[in-house]
Design a binder for these strands. Structure first.
Length: 512
RNA sequence: GCUGCCGUAGGCGAAUUGGUUAAGCCACCGCUCUUUCACAGCGGAGAUUGCGGGUUCGAACCCCGUCGGCAGUACCA
């Protein structure tokens, strides 16, 4: 095992968004490719936003995608605990070190005071008030107050935060694996809060301390973190850890299908498409979302789709198994521009996977769907069924939606085509055909075809006059597999029953 | 506003890193197959590489400017 160690560090504030899944995937791919370690760390330092069930959801989602975790809250490991709320003491201790070495300071300003200050600045025309080198002397902190005053405040248990003391004028360089060198002027950076009043760290502190302690070598995360990376570099420096600082790779955003803005959960409900791997049951209808799994996706298809969203192999290969992705993946091939979430493309991948799936695998998936409707069928029947249908479905639900007639009576006829094709004067002929078909005992597809064809020949009827009648009569629709195959599978009794009912219905349609 | 990132057909995106006619896939159109739909195969349309300058024999690629999109700008992550 190499010393490469990467982490996926979600915050349990709800369902894991598809962008998060992709971040996890890229981390996982890098770890596996280099024989490294994939770590799951739960970043639950904001108690106000904690959502019960979110942590389990994250784990289930990763498992569904096939991303196995090496170290984490369940698996354990030598660098635990892996839940940040369990590491509270560590952060306090480290924040203290920064106070001691002068790179951080106590701040006693309350949120209300901060808000008030922002408000007055705004009225004065300054819309970008920052707690920074320029303003900190006018705030209440251990930089502006005398050490005696600070000691008194601390002794009186005055609530405080610990802030990073950002250097006044310095250029902070960040080397990003996907974007190259990025520079920030330290005077544009604010004095980020490191430790909150409640004793919990902010993301910035926790992330640096944990990544260092957990010996993380590569930080792969979303682009929204790029601006604060300068702070992170400053923190590594403040701790004296600069020489072991991990490499950074900031992933491009996943954009809305419309192209404007980053994909949000609202887009999913608005467009009726999943933007989460698994469904999420929120407190209300509005906070509940469907998932790729519930939408009828194969996890391999979703993973394949996501892998290509912001990364490309540089070849023309499009279909990748997880194993192939592990081999082909490279950070250098990650794109810089935001990738639009193209759900049509996602469906195409799923269709490819279904077509590639074995009959057995498909049957395993279909059986429970049928059972839910109280239908059981033997494997021989189901095998033929999936063979007939697998190349014309996109999501698993389509097996039922466009193949329900294999299991139950036709619910609606294609009336438009019936009006065009049904000739009541030919009914006697079709009754005759019905009898002929019925006489066939457990026929195969070829036998049905022969019977129908000789019937057509005998009566001078073409395919166009006969097949649509049979097709709509048995399945209700013009779409579907070979009608001879469908009839053979359904059996003579069933076909006879359906045709009898259909002819009556056709006359009604014609007359209505 | 400020800071940063990004900009190749409708979408995803390639281009041996400055070297002929700017790949491929999805979507779209047509043909073949099938008297259905889908799959598959073939073909088509669609790009003055956001725009304007510059450097160069030569620019999608380098430089400057400009416009646009996005992100960040919390005691959230």
């Amino acid at each position: 095992m190499s010393n490469v160690r990467v982490r996926f560090a979600p915050s349990p504030t709800g369902a894991l968004h598809i962008g998060g899944v992709r971040t996890a995937l890229y981390n996982y791919l890098l770890a596996r490719q280099l024989g490294g370690t994939f770590i799951l760390r739960i970043e639950d330092t904001d108690q106000n936003r904690y959502v019960p069930g979110a942590e389990d959801y994250i784990k289930e989602a990763l498992a569904w995608c096939g991303l196995t975790i090496d170290e984490g809250t369940e698996q354990g490991g030598d660098y635990g605990p892996y839940r940040q709320s369990d590491r509270k003491a560590i952060y306090l201790e480290h924040a203290q070190k920064l106070i001691d070495n002068g790179t951080a300071y106590y701040a006693f300003d309350t949120p209300e005071e901060l808000d008030a200050r922002r408000e007055t600045e705004k009225e004065a025309g300054n819309h970008n008030f920052r707690y920074d080198a320029a303003s900190r002397s006018s705030m209440r902190n251990s930089e502006s107050l005398s050490s005696k005053e600070v000691a008194q405040l601390l002794a009186a248990n005055t609530p405080y935060t610990i802030r990073l003391k950002v250097p006044t004028d310095e250029i902070v360089k960040v080397t990003d694996l996907v974007r190259g060198d990025v520079q920030f002027q330290s005077k544009e950076l604010d004095d980020k809060i490191l430790l909150k009043t409640d004793g919990m760290p902010t993301y910035h502190l926790a992330n640096i301390v944990d990544d260092h302690l957990m010996k993380i070598t590569h930080v792969i995360r979303g682009e929204e973190w790029l601006p604060s990376t300068a702070h992170h570099v400053l923190l590594y420096r403040a701790f004296g850890w600069e020489d072991t600082m991990p490499a950074f790779a900031h992933l491009p955003l996943i954009l809305k299908p419309t192209g404007k803005g980053k994909l949000s959960k609202r887009d999913g409900v608005k467009l009726g498409i999943p933007v989460f791997p698994l469904a999420w049951k929120g407190a209300t209808e509005e906070e509940s979302f469907t998932g790729f799994r519930e939408f009828g996706f194969d996890p391999r298809a979703m993973v394949n789709f996501m892998a290509l969203l912001g990364w490309n192999p540089g070849t023309e290969q499009e279909l990748f198994s997880l194993e192939e992705l592990i081999k082909a993946f490279s950070i250098e091939k990650i794109g810089k521009a935001g990738a639009r979430f193209d759900f049509d493309k996602a469906k195409w991948f799923n269709q490819q996977y279904i077509m590639q799936s074995s009959d057995e695998d498909l049957i395993t998936i279909i059986k429970p769907m049928l059972a839910e409707k109280g239908i059981t069928k033997d494997d021989a029947f189901l095998t033929t069924f999936v063979q007939l249908m697998k190349e014309r479905v996109v999501v698993y639900g389509d097996f039922w939606d466009s193949g329900y007639y294999f299991f139950t009576d036709v619910t609606a006829y294609d009336e438009k085509n019936i009006r065009k094709k049904w000739k009541p004067e030919n009914q006697a002929l079709f009754e005759d055909l019905r009898q002929q078909l019925k006489a066939l005992n457990s026929p195969d597809e070829a036998a049905v075809e022969t019977t129908v064809k000789s019937f057509m020949e005998a009566n001078g009827l073409g395919f166009g006059a006969v097949l649509p009648i049979l097709r709509i009569g048995v399945t209700g629709t013009m779409k579907g597999p070979s009608i001879f195959a469908v009839m053979a599978l359904l059996g003579t009794e069933e076909v006879d029953r359906r045709l009898e009912a259909a002819y009556a219905a056709f006359n009604a349609i014609k007359n209505g």
